[in-house]
Structures are given as structure tokens and as C-alpha cells.
Design a protein around this nucleic acid. Sequence first.
DNA 1: TAAGTTTGTCTAGCGAATAAACAAAGATTA
DNA 2: TAATCTTTGTTTATTCGCTAGACAAACTTA
Lengths: 394, 394
Amino acid sequence: MSRLSQTWNQHVVKKENKALVLKTIQERAPISRATIANVTGLNKGTVSSLVSELIDEKLIHESGTGKSSGGRRPVMLLLNETAGFTISVDLGVKSILGVLTDLRGNILSEKKIRFSQEDFDEVLALLYQLIDGLKNDAPESEYGIVGIGIGVPGVVTTEGEILLAPNLGWKKVPLQKILFDHYNVPVTVENEANAGAYGEKVYGVGQMSSELIYTSISIGIGVGLILEGKLYKGLRGFSGELGHMTIEKDGADCRCGNQGCWELYASEQALLDQAEEAGFKDTTVDHLIEAADQGDAKAIQLLENVGDYLGVGITNIIHIFNPEQVVVGNTLRQAEKYIMPAIEKRIEKNAIGFNKNDVQLNVAKLKNHSTVMGMAAFNIEKFFTETGNEPIMH
Amino acid sequence: MSRLSQTWNQHVVKKENKALVLKTIQERAPISRATIANVTGLNKGTVSSLVSELIDEKLIHESGTGKSSGGRRPVMLLLNETAGFTISVDLGVKSILGVLTDLRGNILSEKKIRFSQEDFDEVLALLYQLIDGLKNDAPESEYGIVGIGIGVPGVVTTEGEILLAPNLGWKKVPLQKILFDHYNVPVTVENEANAGAYGEKVYGVGQMSSELIYTSISIGIGVGLILEGKLYKGLRGFSGELGHMTIEKDGADCRCGNQGCWELYASEQALLDQAEEAGFKDTTVDHLIEAADQGDAKAIQLLENVGDYLGVGITNIIHIFNPEQVVVGNTLRQAEKYIMPAIEKRIEKNAIGFNKNDVQLNVAKLKNHSTVMGMAAFNIEKFFTETGNEPIMH
DNA sequence: TAAGTTTGTCTAGCGAATAAACAAAGATTA
DNA sequence: TAATCTTTGTTTATTCGCTAGACAAACTTA
């Protein structure tokens, strides 16, 4: 007979409490054992014993004494952020951005490779090159590279297979397996918007929110859902296809098969198409922003129009989820000066009061690093929650 | 200093394991101690001791022996479903439907009161009358009435206050507090669609699904979200306002302040308005179905048209959530013969393959009882997970 | 200098789960 | 029919993690 669900025994208790202590140190370092006991509600003795195990495992370390508050001075504890490193990558349509981070998410090295050929094998070669470069930049450490994470612009299963990446022309690429077989360390492959959402939640503008919707506005629109503090992926990992939410019932046909999809009106592609029609030849988002900055009324109007359409979809999001925060990220975020007021105006006009009052609208704080930092957060979290991490031998 | 999160000690372990044993009996009764141990992974001795406590608390009882499978015959355990009862109510726009259920959700008594006056005090008097009637029908039991639950067509906070019930004309009614002060038993007030979703999940068509979206199609449209097996309520309880999702960007104004809302095209109200225009005077959904059954092409077309618009919104739902199941419930469900094929056709044509292949479209199995049964499920779950239930004294 | 405070460790004890022995009750087989 | 094997459920001894409280160390305050 198969096991129904988790049973609770003392081993689970210890594992959970140890994770709680580690998380507390992550979030509040420098912190003393006594404060951890107060904050978590655990007994002082328990904290002492768990802390000493974490020190043995090199995940944390002591760092001198803190200030006395009328008695013995506390011994402050710090996360041993250089016990291991992550390689976190945003695999985009025209470039690959990769970072080497420590276990606090500090970036130690950053590399970017541009490409034009989208053939998978060629891109994979570039990806290996980038990862190898970052790996070389990693200092000696107890645990070495603890995880590799790749954010991709496409539909990714919960098993890390890219089913479809339309703007790369890829289908059915088992990237997680390919990279794991090559590097033999834990590999996470995740949709770019999902990663961006988590990045903003952990390191960006959403650190205080547990209900956060991240909209990745680029050539298309992807959406990452943080619900109850966790990424929501749906049955098989395909949630968040809000770019293909109909906002115009008998609207234009979308290549996805649907009609009147949001991204036909509110994406970078939509903006560029409209600009073309308005007489801008072979333009880019940067050019349009530049023109707008110089007072070009046509450019301003184009940007505001896209913002208005973004507002329509975001109003839907607010009604659907009752979120705490909606974050606008990816390339079109660069036009925030023009699109954000337009979005706000639309929300102000159209959203239902109860839901509207709860929600904050923000621009991605991590800018073009939302996705890489999200992958870093996935890597780090996986490492810390994995049971029985043993230091590697050198 | 405030406590950050739950700490794990042996008391928690015991509570969780006891709940696990009880849940296993709920789901698989009649079941023996040995089978529980196998299914849950708990030790035989642990199960024996927890079971004996549950028997002492009168929550379960033994019921003779089962069939031998080559050794000693097992003692079968049953849930003591008559240890207590719930009163569960669907407070609608024109009527109140209430049921008395046992702890397995069996209906022992059912009452319905129709009303036309929507004045709160008058409706409250009727509600008291209905609840008192059901209470009188409850047999003597260990725990008596363990909970009262009310599903209402409106916006409900997590604290059980009705902020707005547009079709009743109510604002800011603290119904949970009012009923608790009156009856002094646990009271749950929840949005009608949220309750319907949970009802279908626990007792209806969704028993096998953990990602289920329930659409309540009545005068307006409400949506209940079951994500990862649990009801998702958003930051303050206002999620699921998909009736006010824009599907026509510059569509008609909705009284909610938004434009082109889904429920302007796909609700009972929309159907009746369109029927009026098409020449049906003062008609009802029942009349239209009857006409359609007799081959009235106009009526058939009206129903199919609403179904098509429902399909547009449900396609959005499929793209947003990647659910396992979408359930169509409430009054318009009665026209399933005409609307379901139209919905399916629209999904078939417009939904993205990956998401489409995962999803099942179903009609609410509990018919007009989805909401009451959802409230019953809430009541029962609350009772079973509450710590230290003590039998009441008679 | 003495008394009070805070930090962190140590020890004894508790309670819940587990493994293993055991008893009870039936099936199977010679 | 008797002997053996199976399955169920209880009992017992053991383990392990947490807790309370004692204690020592280190510091502040009067």
C-alpha cells in the first residue's frame, strides 16, 4: 500500500525546527541564540543544540559579541554565505544573463552573452560556456556550486522540460535533464515570469507581501503568481498564461489559437507593431522612450496606450486574485515613466473598490535581474531545505 | 517579541497524527487499525493508542469484525457520524435553503424559505426561523450542533463580515458576529461561490481534483478557487471576482465601475436581457429552457450564445490557473444541455493545447446543493481540527 | 563591592513514536 | 483433527527531541 501523506515524528520535528532556526538567522542576522529562542518560541537549550549542529555543518558561524543590554554580551551568529554558491541564469530571446551568487544572493560575478542564432545546440554551447565561466569564478568553499537554475521564456513542466519556447522556436527540450547529466549538481528550470515573481518576492519590492502577482512584459506577456508566499504553478506547471487571456472577445487572432489575447494589445510586440503603423520605421523600445523623452507626442501616446491596455489586464488580475501587490517587470518596465501612470489611471477608473484599496502597483525593483535573482532564490532554498547536505571533498 | 511561526514539538506531532488517523477513517471507513497503520505509515502501536483516544472522545466507534485475509479478523472502525450535526445554509437572493447534516455530510433535514422583501432585519428573522427549525430536528448527540455556516451572494471578509451583497442591497453586515452572539456555536460566513467550490471538491464532482475552479453562474458570476486542495481567498477574502473580469475592452459599463465584464455577457441576467430584446416578454431561465426543449430556435440560440460567452471566460480561467477541473454551477447549470456543448466548442477552438489537455469541464454534481454542502464541509472540518473538543453536557 | 541581568550550557525528566515481543483469532495443510 | 502459518491488535522497552530549571559566565548598575 502506498503512503498517503506525511507522518509526524520527532525526526520531522527536529528537521523543521532546524530549518526554522536557519531561516531566522538568514532573515535577521546578526542575531544571538537568546534572540532566536525568543523569536521562534523554542527553548534556549534547543536553540543551542541546533545552532551547534549548524555550525558543525559550516552553514553558519559565530562573529564576535554584540552589545550588552544589561547583562552578558550575546554571541552574534551569521549565515556562512560563502559556504556555497549558485549559478543562476536568465535565458532570454536575444541574450543569456548569468550570475554567480553566494548563499545570501549577493552577486559575485556576472556574465552576458548575446546571440542571434536560436538553434538549440548553438545556444546550449553558449550556455555551457557561460556556466563554465561563472563556475571558474567561484571561490573554494565547503559545498561548492550548490545549484544551477535557468529561467526560460516558455512553457516548462514541473519536471523541468521546456515544452514550448515560442520566441526561441524550441519544443520539447528536457533542459533540466541535459544540464544535470552534464554538471551533476541540482538543476532547476523554471519559466522566466515565475522566477521573476519569486525574485521580487525574496529580494525585490515584494519582501513584505505574500500575495504578489508579477507581470513580465516583454515581446509577449508572462505572469508569475505568488500565492500564500509560494509560487503557484497549477496542475502541471502551466499556470500564469495570462498573456493569453482574452480581453477583446472577437479580437484579433493570436498565434496561440485564441482571440483578443492581452499580449496582442499590451506587449513590446504590440507597441512596436503600433509604432510601425504610426510611421516609426524599424524602431525599438529604447528609441520610442528616447523620442518620448524629447517630447514626441506620437511616441508618448503610443506608450500611454500600451500602458492603458496593461491596466485593463492588471485590473482583471486584481479582481481575480485580490493580491497585495502587482509588479511590472521585464523590458517594458523601462518605459515606466509613461506606462505606470496610464496603468494607474485605468485601475483607478475600473477596479472594484474593495480589491483596489488592498493593492499596491510597483515596478520591479531588481530591474532586469528579477529572473536571475528568482533562480538564485530557488537554488538557495532547495539547498537549505535539502536533507543531509554533506560538505564536498576537495 | 512576537512569535514568528509555529514551532514543532511532540504535542504538535500528536495532534497532527491524531488528525491524520481521523481523516483516514473519514475517507476509508470501514477500516481496521492495521490498515490505518499501513496507509499512514504510522506504527501499529501508535495507531492503537490514537484510535482508543478517538473512541473515548466518541468521534469514532468499532463496528464488528471484517473479513479475514488469512489471519485474525480485523475490527472495523467507523466514523461516529451522529456525534454532532451541522446547520448549513445557502442564503440566496430570493430564498434561503438550509440543511441539517451529520458529520459525514448526510442530509437529515432540509428547509427552504422564499422571500421577496430584501430588508436585512426581515431576512434575518427568517434566517433565525429556519435555523431554529433545523436545530429542533437534530437528534440528541454528544456534541450537539457543532457549527452553523452561511453562504451568501456577496463580498465577505475573512472575518465573516458581508461588505457588499449587491443583489440583496446589503452593505457592511457583520453576519458572523450576529449569529455567534445569538447561537453561541462556531459560525462560518463565506461567499456562495467559494462554498460551492468546496462543496463540489469534498462531496461532488471534484473529489479527485486538487486544482478546481468552480463557476457560479446565476444573476451574476462568482468564482471559487480550489488551489492545492484548499480554498484560495486572496489577501482579505476578495479573490474570485472573475465575474468582473473584462472580456471586451471597450464593452458596456458595469455597475461595478469596470467595463466589458464577463457577467455582462454570460450570466442569467445577460441571458434574460438578451431574451427581452429578442422578443421574450418577462421570461425566466426555466421558460427559455422549456422553449428550447420544444425546438424554439430563438431560445436555443440565446442559450448557446450565453454558453459561448461562458466559454470565453472559462478559456481565460484555463490559461490563468492550469486547473484539473472547471465546474459549472448554480442556476444556469440547469441549461446544461444547451450551454455545455457551446462552452466546450469555444474551449476546443480557443484554449492552448497544453492547458486544454489537462482540464475537465463538468457540471456541478450537487446541483443546487453545492453551496450548502460546501458550508457543511467547512463546519465539519472546523469541528474536527479544533483542539480539545469536549462533549457537551445534557 | 554587591546585587541584579542577560546569555548560553548542562542535566534531569517527559512524552510521543518505534521496534519487537506477545497474545488472540482465524486460515491452511497434512 | 492437529500442527503450522497469517494477520490483527496490545504491551513493553527503548530511543530521541524538547522543555524546565539549575548553573556558570560575563556584563551593568547602584
